[in-house]
C-alpha cells in the first residue's frame, strides 16, 4: 500500500506533510487481552489538504489521530511529519513540532481550563513558544485572534464558564491558531455543538484553511459534515481503514459495504428523498475491538460476507486511482 501512496504523492508533485505507515496502537486490557484501537493503518496527508476520518464510536479514530500528533506512542509503525519521525523528536525539534501541530478538541467544556481567563487560555501557547516581544503585542495578538473567531477584546478577561458551547469552541480554535500552526488535528470539533453553531465553526475552519494554508485531519462521526469539509475521506471500522477516497468519490461510488451502509443510514433533510429511500439496515452493532476474530473485521455485520471473509482479512487495495478499499468483493 505504501508504494501506491508514494506513487500518488509523486504524481501530485508535492511531498506529503504527514505520512502514516502501518501504524498500530494496542492497549492492554485485563486478562492479557489486547484492544487493537488502531490496527495497521496507513495514509498520508498533503499540505493544504483536509483528510476526513469517519467511523462509529470505538472505531479508533480518536486514538489514531492522537497517535499521529504524538500524544500517544505507537505500538508499531511510523508517523513522519515533514519527513521526520515524530515519535523520535527531541529538544528544539520537538518544540518546533508542538508549535506546528495543534489540536482542536471535541468537548468545548472539558478542553478549556475553568480557572483561566480567555486571554490566559489563548496566550498560553504564545507564552510557551515566546511568540511576542512585549505585553502590548501579546494583548493585541489575543484581540486579533478573538476577532478572527468572531468574538472581541471585551471577552478576553472573562472566564470560560460564561460562554456557550459554540463560543468556547471558537476560543479553542483561537488557542490553536495562536501559535501559527501548519497542521491541526480536529478531533470531533463539531459534535458537541448545535447545528447553527456547527455551521459557524465549520465555515471558520474552511475559511482559515484557505487564508492560512492549514492542513487538517478532521475526525468525526458525522459523515455528511466530514464529506463537506474534507478533500479525502478515510472510513474506519474497528481500528482499520476500510475505504479511502476523495469525498466526491466516497459519496457517489462507495465500494465497501460498511461505507454504503453508513451512507444510507445518514438521514437527509428532505421528506421526499427520505420517503422514497431504501435503507441498508445493518444487523447488530459494532463488535468489540477486543479479541477480534480472524478474517474481515466487518464480516459479522456484512450482508455480502462469504467463506473467504471469515478466513482472510482483505487488504486495502487501490481499485481506481486514489480510491482504496479493503474488501474482497470491491469492484466486482
Amino acid at each position: 500500500m505504501s508504494n501506491e501512496v508514494e506513487k500518488t504523492a509523486a504524481a501530485a508533485g508535492t511531498k506529503p506533510l504527514l505520512e502514516v505507515s502501518h501504524l498500530k496502537k494496542y492497549f492492554k486490557v485485563g486478562n492479557k487481552r489486547t484492544l487493537k484501537a488502531v490496527d495497521d493503518v496507513s495514509f498520508n496527508i498533503m499540505p493544504g489538504e483536509t483528510l476526513g476520518v469517519v467511523g462509529e464510536s470505538g472505531c479508533g479514530k480518536t486514538t489514531c489521530g492522537r497517535t499521529c500528533v504524538g500524544m500517544y506512542d505507537p505500538t508499531d509503525g511510523t508517523v513522519l511529519y515533514n519527513g521526520k519521525n515524530i515519535h523520535e523528536l527531541k529538544g528544539a525539534e520537538k518544540k518546533a513540532f508542538t508549535k506546528e501541530v495543534q489540536i482542536i478538541f471535541q468537548d468545548p467544556y472539558a478542553s478549556l481550563n475553568p480557572r483561566m481567563t480567555v486571554a490566559e487560555i489563548i496566550g498560553e501557547g504564545m507564552d510557551v513558544h515566546g511568540l511576542y516581544t512585549g505585553k502590548q503585542e501579546r494583548q493585541e495578538r489575543i484581540g486579533q485572534l478573538l476577532r478572527m473567531v468572531g468574538l472581541n477584546q471585551e471577552h478576553a478577561n472573562r472566564f470560560i464558564h460564561e460562554f456557550s458551547g459554540g463560543q468556547r469552541q471558537r476560543i479553542g480554535i483561537a488557542r490553536a491558531l495562536a501559535v501559527e500552526p501548519r497542521f491541526i488535528l480536529c478531533d470531533e470539533p463539531l459534535s458537541a455543538l448545535d447545528v447553527s453553531i456547527q455551521a459557524q465553526v465549520a465555515n471558520l475552519l474552511i475559511r482559515f484553511q484557505k487564508e492560512l494554508g492549514l492542513t487538517y485531519m478532521f475526525i468525526a462521526h458525522d459523515l455528511a459534515m466530514v464529506k463537506h469539509i474534507s478533500d479525502r475521506v478515510a472510513v474506519m471500522y474497528l481500528g482499520s481503514v476500510v475505504e479511502l477516497a476523495t469525498s466526491a468519490e466516497i459519496y457517489s461510488n462507495p465500494l465497501h459495504p460498511y461505507t454504503e451502509a453508513l451512507m444510507s443510514a445518514i438521514p437527509i433533510a428532505d421528506p421526499d428523498i427520505e420517503d422514497s429511500r431504501q435503507r441498508i439496515m445493518l444487523e447488530g452493532e459494532v463488535t468489540s475491538p477486543i479479541d477480534v476474530p480472524p478474517g474481515c473485521k466487518f464480516q459479522s455485520r456484512c450482508p455480502r460476507a462469504k467463506e473467504c471473509c471469515r478466513k482472510d482479512a482483505p487488504e486495502l487495495k487501490e481499485v481506481s486511482p486514489g480510491h482504496f478499499v479493503a474488501c474482497h468483493f470491491a469492484g466486482k
Binding site: 447545528v195 447553527s196 455551521a199 459523515l223 455528511a224 464529506k227 469539509i229 433533510a269 428532505d270 428523498i273
Partner: peptide, 18 residues
Amino acid sequence: GAVPRLDWENKQMLRTIR
C-alpha cells in the same frame, strides 16, 4: 441551510447564523 447534506456540493460555505 446550516446542515451539510450528502447530496450537496463539497466545501461550499454553509449558511450560518451569527
